[in-house]
Design a protein around this nucleic acid. Structure first.
Lengths: 344, 344
DNA sequence: TTGTAAGCGTTATCAA
DNA sequence: TTGATAACGCTTACAA
């Protein structure tokens, strides 16, 4: 027969005190004498008592649970996170930080805004981490209930209300484009997912600025229909190769890698015939052939920072928004234009 | 002023019935008349009532929560899942299936076995999914508490007690090795992480069987010190190239890709100088250069199957263990040995 | 078929 | 400094 695990009542009885007193020492409420405190602690130890989170949640109206929310596409979060190890690093970092602070992490996809509200309530979630951009109504809902949240990779006006963690998107694109221009490219193409997405937009802005400073004409951007994925890059190849670009800046490594593959199949060599730069510096970019010139963002640091801010906000603080630095990592996928074969 | 969200008491009052009746219709207990059922349903609708999970958890002693457990290395799950999109697909699939069944997913790393026990209890977890192999003590703990669990990628004796989901590891390695042998290779190297891991062991067995059938001599396997990662493959290159192998079978795509990269840096061409096959068929293997010949396992199906079995076990069923099929995907990284340069 | 009331394991309010 | 005791929101015998 399995012995039931001890409750606070058992501890109280064992220590010869009331439940209240046990609760006091558990929660470090001052009004306990040293002697009873010791007795209680001993009993806890002896019985192997651990407080029950669901009971605590019920009375305290908080759960020690934080939720990571990913966009749902086709009823699944797979479409977003399937191929991109960006999420692996983010999630790992958040999980670690949360666990160290006594929180558990709930991972979920979110479709309809109204679901979200009840979900937060039903679970009494203490805090939320939004990975990426969500429909506007979600943020409105958020405001109406009153739960701490941190927005990651979002530039909406909502950022004013909630702490956010971003990276220097504009600068990243700028650095990459400058690098390409400095190599001597004057036909540089921008390839991203959707310029209406603010992150993409800012990157485009950085691209434009670099072009301007280099005195070259921005080209018509190539937008891919899907999200950041190999396929997006792969399918972009047709439109890319229809241009006279000698260099391409992609807004994610995953797109760049898909693109490079498709170019390879068309006999277009990278970087000999075309230079390609990415964004993110996911692990694989170091190992791909050619290895990818890219903009490094410190993904784990980002996840850790986001979790940290959420923890702070949950304690009642008002953490500042944070914008993390990025840097250019030059690898094999970019080179000077091939003067021989290229025009101009 | 924020209006409090309605409780079951509010609904009862609104409908002019008792809390019990509301609970009955909520939980589909038969003994409710059509008329009251309708009244209650209307009130629920009108008030926008949603049951509170923490309260339900407390009385029912179950949480509608399932836990995904990953091995912790260095206090972080990052080391395991950082680079490998295998986990992205698994987690996505589990999350989707769970969500559709009204469960939420808790993601956590697990270090010390004793932590695990209290964690399950504190959260009243309904079920557990173990991703990969854990120290033996964990399974012992599991048995002592009584929580449904499904083991993934584990061949321990524990599998007898718990439903498991595996793939045909032996067959996969066999297929890959056969493919290499059929191409004409007779010096085929096995590269994996650690032959003491049962999954690796079975793959080695398949490799051996294929060698035997092809009448070739198995070579001394190369074991990498780390887990499945680019670096493992990358670092294996030195030992691989020190052999006279003309083909290598790696036990994961991620290792294969790391290896190919390192070989590339050493001027060893794949597949011209050396053929390389992987295992898993993660998305990137389709897009790498060269694209990777590999053993496809249906990762999402696997995650879905695991979640399904757990759901079944939680309902009191005893799901059968399942072994999913694998298949050979031939791509660019394997080719006949270069008779010109190779010996023999 | 419906209602009453006793839990579930905590925390928190008041007296003592 | 302590201890009853009433919440917290729900489920479930047991009565009616």
């Amino acid at each position: 027969m399995m012995k039931k695990r001890p409750t606070i009542t058992d501890v109280a009885r064992h220590a010869g005190v009331s439940k209240a007193s046990v609760s006091y020492v558990l929660n470090d409420v001052k009004k306990v004498s040293q002697s009873t405190k010791e007795r209680v602690l001993m009993s806890i130890e002896e019985l192997g008592y651990e407080p029950d989170f669901t009971a605590v949640s019920l009375t305290r109206q908080r759960s020690q649970l934080i939720g990571i929310i990913l966009p749902l596409v086709n009823q699944s979060i797979a479409h977003v996170m399937r191929e991109n190890t960006y999420y692996n690093e983010m999630i790992s970092a958040v999980e670690q930080r949360a666990r160290e602070s006594g929180f558990d992490v709930l991972l979920t996809g979110l479709s309809r805004p109204e679901h979200y509200r009840t979900w937060v309530h039903k679970r009494k979630l203490d805090g939320l981490l939004f990975f990426g951009l969500f429909p506007k109504e979600i943020y409105d809902e958020m405001r109406s209930i009153d739960v701490p949240a941190v927005l990651i990779d979002t530039y909406e006006e909502h950022t004013d209300r909630y702490p956010s963690v971003n990276i220097e998107d504009e600068k990243g694109a700028y650095l990459a484009t400058c690098h390409l221009a400095e190599l001597g490219h004057s036909r540089i193409l921008f390839t991203g997912t959707n310029l209406h997405n603010p992150v993409e937009h800012y990157r485009y802005t950085g691209y434009e600025r670099a072009c301007k400073e280099a005195g070259i004409q921005p080209m018509n951007p190539v937008e891919t229909p899907h999200s950041h994925s190999f396929l997006s890059g792969y399918e972009a190849a047709e439109r890319v190769s229809a241009t006279d670009a000698t260099a391409v800046f992609c807004t994610s490594d995953i797109i760049a890698q898909g693109l490079i593959r498709a170019l390879y199949e068309r006999g277009i060599r990278v970087p000999d015939d075309l230079s390609v730069a990415g964004f993110d510096d996911i692990h694989s970019s170091r190992y791909s052939i050619p290895s990818l010139t890219t903009i490094r963002q410190q993904i784990q640091l980002k996840g850790d920072a986001a979790a940290g801010k959420l923890l702070e906000a949950m304690k009642g603080g008002s953490p500042e928004p944070e914008v993390l630095d990025v840097s250019l990592i030059i690898r094999e996928s970019t080179a000077p234009p091939d003067i021989g074969s290229a025009s101009q």
